[in-house]
Amino acid sequence: MPEPILISISAALAAKTIVGLVDLVRRKFAKDPAATAALEAAQAAPEDPKAVQALAEHLDTTEKSDENFATALRSEWEKASVSQQAKSGKVVNQISGDVSGKVVQAGDIHGDISF
């Protein structure tokens, strides 16, 4: 099972929101048809949790076999994470570090939230 951060990275890759991250992964996956197919499937259906999970699993395997890639991937993610900005009418939600407990990520909330 991939780390939660890899799920987040995969979701960003699927949505193509971080160009440098997409380019890094695309280059790394270029010689791996299964990984490339997972990236393309996630990008074709970024709302599909199974596609995002499959991509995260490929990232996990690739990170474990290539320490340099793992370092580059985390570095690119860190750069993007600290510089995210919401465009007009959009929302950026960010959670980092060791998180436990309940979290809500949302744009506008009208009314109460309860767990």
Rank of each mutant, 00 (worst) to 15 (best):
Q43S: 14
V92M: 11
I95D: 01
S81P: 01
A11H: 12
T61M: 08
D112W: 04
G20I: 05
E76N: 06
K102C: 01
K79E: 00
G111A: 11
A30I: 02
R27S: 15
E3V: 07
S100Q: 10
G107W: 07
V99F: 15
V91A: 14
H110T: 15
L21F: 12
G89Q: 02
R26N: 15
A86P: 03
E67Q: 13
G111T: 10
G111N: 09
G101A: 06
T62W: 01
A44Q: 09
G89W: 04
W77D: 03
E57M: 12
G107C: 05
F29I: 10
Q85G: 00
A70K: 09
A54W: 00
D112Y: 06
A44E: 08
L73A: 02
Q85T: 10
I5A: 10
V91K: 14
Q84H: 04
K28L: 14
T61E: 10
M1D: 06
V103Y: 15
R74Y: 11
A12G: 04
P2M: 08
L21R: 11
D108T: 13
I18V: 14
D23A: 04
D23E: 15
S88F: 05
L13I: 11
E57I: 11
L59M: 07
D48H: 06
D48C: 05
A80K: 01
A44W: 03
S88Q: 11
S81D: 06
D112T: 09
A72Y: 00
P2H: 12
D48K: 09
T62G: 01
Q85F: 08
K79P: 00
V104A: 10
L59T: 01
A14H: 07
S8P: 08
A38P: 08
D66V: 03
Q94H: 06
G97R: 01
N93V: 08
D48R: 09
V99L: 14
A14F: 08
S96D: 09
S75V: 01
P46E: 02
S8R: 12
I5P: 01
D66E: 08
I18R: 05
S100D: 06
K31N: 12
S88H: 10
E63H: 00
L6A: 01
R74W: 02
N93W: 13
K31D: 15
A44P: 04
F29P: 02
Q53W: 03
A34Q: 15
